[in-house]
Design a protein around this nucleic acid. Sequence first.
DNA 1: ACAAAAGTGTTACACGTACACCCATGG
DNA 2: CCATGGGTGTACGTGTAACACTTTTGT
Lengths: 251, 251
Amino acid sequence: MYHSTLNSQLLLKPHSMIRYSGQTRILVAVDCVIFGFDGNDLKILLIQRGFEPEAKKWSLMGGFIQPAENLDQAANRILKQLTGLEGVYLEQLHVFGEPFRDPLERTIGVAYFSLIDIHKYEKQLNDEYHAEWFLLNDFPKLIFDHEEMIETAKNHLRYKAALHPILFELLPEKFTIPQLQSLYEGIYGATFDKRNFSRKLLSTGLLIRQQDKHKENSKKGAFYYMLNENQYKEKFQAFLNFIPNPESLIF
Amino acid sequence: MYHSTLNSQLLLKPHSMIRYSGQTRILVAVDCVIFGFDGNDLKILLIQRGFEPEAKKWSLMGGFIQPAENLDQAANRILKQLTGLEGVYLEQLHVFGEPFRDPLERTIGVAYFSLIDIHKYEKQLNDEYHAEWFLLNDFPKLIFDHEEMIETAKNHLRYKAALHPILFELLPEKFTIPQLQSLYEGIYGATFDKRNFSRKLLSTGLLIRQQDKHKENSKKGAFYYMLNENQYKEKFQAFLNFIPNPESLIF
DNA sequence: ACAAAAGTGTTACACGTACACCCATGG
DNA sequence: CCATGGGTGTACGTGTAACACTTTTGT
């Protein structure tokens, strides 16, 4: 129902079937940029097409939206098909609409942004899927504009993680402060003072120290922490400063 | 070129016309949420359809994307058709994709977010357009999910203006600090201390004081300022705190 | 002369940052 | 007993917030 100067007119069809006439209808795809963290490095999940054409080319996990679903539902469906995971952090990122981004046929690409706990991800054994984690700084050439989508997602991650406690979505339920710090350091390509880092994090009231320790990385062992879920929900949208000198960050 | 489990297959047509088969193609519309500031209140620009059906119903400015244009181009074209303005601040906001958001036919709605200097806007006299500024807090019922788009845009404006110097896009080339402050106060529904406010703004180095004064609002008159364009471009993406107590803001 | 808005300075406090040493333990 | 990573405290500087009076000038 748009304006006639915008080339939209209504066409009355038989059996009261009304549609917009004179407009082009195009495909709408959802593509998911899925981040994971293995304790040392940030990674993204890519799939390899197992059949012709474009076989062996890597791409983001994507699919076309179905008639009865909305965009979030499509993204969740696609994520579940690839990873088997449900209820993970998923957020609409940006829409890509260059006319020839898909050379076969015009397709609008709605990019989604997802953070998952890499340890929860169990590779779905499926002849059709060839999904693999790649280092965020070293992944193969991708189809279409998927590399641009990843670039946008990377910037979004850096932007949002500076203000909001989203990085916990990448960590297991129990994690240590050194793990958390190395995640932040990886994302910003910087090193932070550990005394200031842990004081800042603990002052948010988001973390609850556990009794037990993680002892893989040191002899002394590092205390596990878990999220305080109430605080987490409450402060998820608030502005918090998680990194030093945020003013100097340019995105 | 998506995965076969996602119901995508390639169909080879005659004369080497390849398309994805088994997928539904849908309309893609762009809808612009256009903000303006008249010196006292935040406003949005709405149009009234001038013809049946849905005549007299108010809506955001929107239109379908054309075969040869990308999304940004479509939004700019639509904005120009309505306001005659070019080169204004325009940013993709969010995509709305509920299956029945347009009851006539499935349509994806890409919402754009625009800030314009209300004084530059000259109503295009056009029998087909009925565009009008409405108070952001008091506008008529809109078609489809356009009210939700405005709500999203309002939140985005509050979010972004707290960190980045975007509100200058709403002001004329020459403006005063009291005008700027009343704009911030309107957006956050709060009152700020004028001494702290002007010190904070001036410390960014974004403002250049002019010789002349604006004398409509007071006998003493308020100095005009203009943007330091170099600083503006440089600091546009940086994190700056424009409002007191941002941590307490929940979006 | 007075009303009405513009402009400005100081102080207290909170927060951010820089910095160095001890702890616990497995080998 | 020592090497390794984990954990903590303090002093200083910067930035933020609270606060009140003077200036200008049209009427």
